[in-house]
Structure formats: structure tokens, C-alpha cells
């Protein structure tokens, strides 16, 4: 038998793995999402370094102290960086093309990840004309609120 060759080429075994999790939001994020439902964006502030966080951290990862102060954050901000994605992968939440953005909301010290939308995204060259790092954006609320990050539907560009 030693000289017998396998009859077929090596195969692959295909499978889909599903694993369900239910994860706690914790007090801070729960409060954040509850506020989104009322169209308010709340962040937390570090008592030591004074940085304002969004998502609202319960602690400052650098100072390692509790963030006890809540502050309401502006609904406009500046584009720190952005990315036009035309890449499709399995199980993606947003269907491409979409524009992922890091927004520096007024009154915060960190960037928030979200998306820019509200206009035709099919032509990249046009998108490139419109979206610039340093440009201004504002929140567009979702009419239907579910207490998650999509209560902010998207950020729209504020014309210069």
C-alpha cells in the first residue's frame, strides 16, 4: 500500500461557524446610547488630564482614574481622516461603497469613528472633490432610534 497515491487532490472542508454572544454595555455606554435616543451626544472627561472622551470611557486609559464628569458634546466636528471603502467582505455591517470617517467632534479630545453619507458615493473622483481632511461635518440623526451607534445615521458635509 505504501506506493498507492491518494485518488484525489487534497481537499478542503467548508464550514460556517456561528457563535452568539451577548455583551454588557456597562453603565457609561448604556447612558451614552440612551442619550443618543434623545439626540444628545454625551462624553466623559478625565479629572486629571481633562481630555474629553467619546465613546465615553468610565476611566482614562492614561491617567487610570475614574472619569466622573459628563459633558455634552457638539454635533459638529472636523474630519481628522477618512477612507473610501469599496472592499466587500463576509459579514460586513455597511455595504460598500461607504466612507468611514474619524470625526473630531467639537469639545472632545479624541476622534470618533462613523461614516459620511448623504450624497452619491458611486463616483470616487467626485467623493474626493468633496471630502477633505480638515473639512467640517455635522450629525444627521436617524429617525428611528434603537439605542445604538446608528442612532447617528451619518455625518453630512457642511459646505465651506
Amino acid at each position: 500500500m505504501a506506493d498507492e497515491k491518494p485518488k484525489e487532490k487534497p481537499r478542503e472542508m467548508k464550514a460556517q461557524v456561528t457563535v452568539p454572544y451577548e455583551m454588557a454595555m456597562g453603565r457609561n455606554w448604556h447612558r451614552f446610547f440612551e442619550n443618543l435616543k434623545e439626540e444628545r451626544i454625551m462624553g466623559t472627561k478625565c479629572g486629571k488630564c481633562s481630555r474629553v472622551f467619546i465613546p465615553p470611557r468610565s476611566f482614562c486609559p492614561r491617567c487610570f482614574e475614574d472619569n466622573e464628569e459628563w459633558v455634552e458634546i457638539g454635533q459638529e466636528g472636523t474630519i481628522e481622516t477618512w477612507c473610501y471603502s469599496n472592499l466587500m467582505f463576509y459579514g460586513q455591517t455597511l455595504k460598500p461603497p461607504f466612507i468611514a470617517v474619524q470625526v473630531h467632534l467639537d469639545g472632545t479630545d479624541v476622534g470618533l469613528q462613523h461614516r459620511i453619507a448623504g450624497f452619491d458615493l458611486s463616483d470616487f473622483e467626485k467623493v474626493r472633490e468633496l471630502v477633505k481632511s480638515g473639512g467640517r461635518v455635522r450629525v444627521v440623526w436617524n429617525k428611528e432610534k434603537k439605542g445604538n451607534i446608528f442612532d447617528i445615521d451619518y455625518f453630512e458635509l457642511i459646505p465651506e
Partner: peptide
């Protein structure tokens, strides 16, 4: 079961140890 999220939960316990030891994070 705890309603804390993973991140806050981790912070709480790590912080407790550092506070007990009188050691700063950095």
C-alpha cells in the same frame, strides 16, 4: 454575572491592585 462591560470590569480590578500597592499605572 456583572453588568459591567469587559473594559470597565478589567479596569476596576487592575486599578484595585495598583491602588492597594500604591503604585501608579505608568
Amino acid at each position: 454575572e456583572s453588568g459591567d462591560n469587559l473594559m470597565d470590569f478589567t479596569y476596576r480590578i487592575s486599578k484595585e491592585v495598583l491602588d492597594k500597592a500604591g503604585l501608579k499605572r505608568n
